[in-house]
Computed example of a mutant assay.
Amino acid sequence: MIPWPCRTMGFEKSVIMRSTQGRMIMAPALAITGADRYDRMDKVRLAVDRETREHARL
C-alpha cells in the first residue's frame, strides 16, 4: 500500500501526514504562514514523488 510509506517519508521531511482511505492528509501547525505552507507542500511533493518512483520498481 503506497500511503503508509509516503507518510513515513513525510515524517522524514518533518511533515506530519496521515493516511486515510488511500488519501494523504497533512496536519500543519496551528499557526502557519503562506511561505510555510509552500515549504510544506514542497516536502510533501518530494515524499510522494519518492514513493511513486520506488513503487514503480516493484
Rank of each mutant, 00 (worst) to 15 (best):
K13H: 10
L30A: 12
L58C: 14
P28I: 01
M17Y: 00
A31K: 05
R57C: 12
C6D: 01
E12V: 08
R23Y: 06
A31W: 04
R45V: 08
V44Y: 00
R50W: 08
T8Q: 09
D36M: 05
I25T: 07
M24P: 00
T52R: 11
T33L: 03
A29Q: 05
W4T: 15
T33P: 00
P3W: 01
V15A: 00
W4I: 15
M26Y: 02
M26L: 08
D39S: 14
R50S: 13
R57N: 13
R7G: 01
R18Q: 07
D49R: 09
R23S: 09
L58V: 12
M26W: 02
T52D: 06
A31P: 02
S19H: 03
M41V: 09
W4P: 13
M41I: 11
R37M: 08
G22Q: 02
V48I: 07
A35T: 13
R57S: 15
R45G: 06
A35G: 11
A27C: 13
R53F: 09
M17T: 01
M41W: 07
I25K: 05
P28V: 03
R57A: 15
W4A: 15
R23C: 08
A27H: 11
R7H: 04
S19P: 04
I32T: 10
I2P: 06
I2M: 08
P5E: 03
R57L: 15
W4L: 15
A56V: 11
T52L: 12
R23H: 09
I25H: 04
A29E: 05
A35Y: 08
A29F: 05
E12Y: 07
T33Q: 02
V44W: 01
R45P: 03
R23A: 09
V15D: 03
K43M: 04
